[in-house]
Design a protein around this nucleic acid. Structure first.
Length: 299
DNA sequence: GTCCAGGGAATCA
DNA sequence: TGATTCCATGGA
């Protein structure tokens, strides 16, 4: 396979750390030179900022091995480059001071169009887990059952397809360090292989609630994981609002101000999010999540 | 040793 | 519906 390069100049709302370390993805890693290398589908790509412009746009180099001839379009699709994030950030900034600050802090965030299947499995693994360990498990899973691709002398592994996992036992998952999530991975893979949940139907169904309910039938997929799948995968639903411990924390600190954070109900947070952020709740969530995680208490 | 991590499922009121 | 408890694992 041949290495291709693609340069995009004057790109707004695109910062490497904001995109790859904001918590939406698990397979991008920082290189010593500050660039990031990652893999999606059968694409292994290194992304670097060549130069910064005075208007805060960036000139970006995408260099890697691509699955399709039409790699320029694939990059635009995966990195969501057709969407106007400047407009989104302006809309959110008008809501209040917290959104103004958080969108300024995470100004380079773009929500990737990640593969639905991979996102489902990744966020099942994320349950009651921390990001470094989630990344480690996904790497081991890919190395064990995915396809090897060599890029610049290093080995990378594609995320295994449902078919590549069809004969994997619960014990084998346990040995990869999945913990109690082993059975969930096993059952969900089986359900998808047996077409009890049809991924293509989910991709074409415009009704978010219907898709969400279907996702909830999968083992290991509860409300939070379902919302992460809806928001961070190619399903791209910005109106959902995933609530984890960090989001509950930041929402309580900024708006609810309950003394005992654990007492704040999910329902209350959800209602507040819909009232305040509306159809952009998911993006508001991501800017606030990233802002809070990177900076500690900002209230 | 204890606590915590981008929670879910089972159980019980 | 809502609240508790248990679930592996590894790092702090």
């Amino acid at each position: 396979m041949q290495i291709k390069g693609y340069i995009i100049k004057n790109q707004d709302s695109f910062e490497l750390k904001d995109i790859f370390d904001c918590g939406q993805c698990f397979r991008w890693n920082k290189e010593p030179d500050g660039s990031y290398t990652g893999i999606w589908s059968k694409n292994v790509v290194n992304v670097s900022i060549i130069s910064k412009n005075q208007d805060s746009t960036n000139n970006i180099l995408f260099k890697g091995i691509f699955e399709t001839q039409n790699y320029e379009q694939e990059i635009k699709r995966y990195f969501d480059l057709e969407r106007d994030y400047t407009k989104i950030k302006n809309q959110l900034s008008n809501i209040d001071e917290n959104l103004r600050k958080s969108t300024k802090y995470g100004k380079g965030i773009r929500i990737l169009n990640q593969d639905l299947w991979e996102t489902i499995i990744s966020f099942i693994i994320s349950a009651n887990n921390n990001i470094p360990r989630i990344k480690g498990i996904i790497e081991r899973l890919s190395k064990a059952y995915g396809e090897k691709i060599i890029f610049e002398g290093k080995e990378y592994y594609t995320f295994p397809t449902p078919d590549q996992l069809k004969d994997v036992t619960v014990e084998e998952y346990r040995n990869l360090g999945l913990g109690f999530r082993d059975i969930r991975l096993y059952e969900t893979t089986k359900m998808i292989l047996e077409n009890k949940v049809n991924l293509n139907e989910l991709k074409t169904n415009p009704n978010t609630l219907e898709v969400r309910n279907k996702l909830l039938t999968l083992s290991g997929v509860g409300p939070k994981v379902a919302d992460c799948i809806l928001l961070f995968s190619e399903l791209k639903r910005f109106e959902v609002f995933p609530i984890d411990v960090w989001v509950r924390r930041v929402m309580n600190e900024l708006y609810i101000k309950e003394e005992n954070e654990e007492k704040v109900s999910k329902k209350k947070i959800e209602k507040l999010a819909i009232d305040k952020f509306g159809s952009l709740a998911g993006l508001a969530q991501q800017y606030l999540f990233y802002w809070r995680r990177e900076n500690g208490n900002i209230a």
